[in-house]
């Protein structure tokens, strides 16, 4: 677990191989830990990142993961943006349906990830798919 006094974790991760999926989920989790998110939220977030990062590596030919955090007196928010330049997802609604799968586990991954975070948006066209995951928690004094 990251000590909150240590240097901040990376905010950008290249997604090329399966090891990068591990790095992305661990980094997202480290950030969530720094923001003081509860353990169960850290695990939810790491799991959601893992699903989306895997889609980028497997179906998008690799991609990029960017992590930003916002801290206000009232809340902390973490936002993960994962992009890839693959063929894109033709029918986003269908792809988010639980159990929908294009050959592998895409459907389960997307619908599962959406349930684990507060907000997930997916914008896709051939050459650019962007998935944003947001988790916000109020600050307890």
């Amino acid at each position: 677990m990251t000590d909150r006094d240590q240097a901040p974790p990376a905010s950008g991760i290249e997604l090329r191989r399966s090891e990068d999926i591990v790095l992305a989920r661990q980094t997202g989790r480290d950030w969530a830990c720094r923001l003081g998110f509860r353990m169960v939220d850290q695990i939810r977030l790491a799991t959601a990142i893992s699903e989306i990062a895997r889609n980028a590596v497997r179906y998008g030919g690799g991609g990029q993961c960017e992590i930003t955090t916002t801290t206000t007196p009232l809340f902390c928010e973490i936002s993960i943006v994962i992009t890839d330049h693959g063929p894109g997802i033709p029918d986003v609604e269908q792809a988010m349906t639980p159990g929908f799968s294009t050959g592998n586990s895409l459907g389960m991954g997307l619908s599962g990830a959406r349930r684990l975070v507060d907000r997930m948006t997916l914008v896709s066209r051939p050459g650019l798919t962007t998935v944003t995951l947001v988790m916000r928690r109020s600050v307890h004094p």
């Binding site: 695990i43 799991t47 639980p98 684990l116």
Partner: peptide
């Protein structure tokens, strides 16, 4: 299995 993992799996519908 860690209880938080169980929570996450069920929430995901898995």
């Amino acid at each position: 299995m860690n209880p938080m993992v169980a929570v996450t799996l069920i929430e995901m519908g898995r």
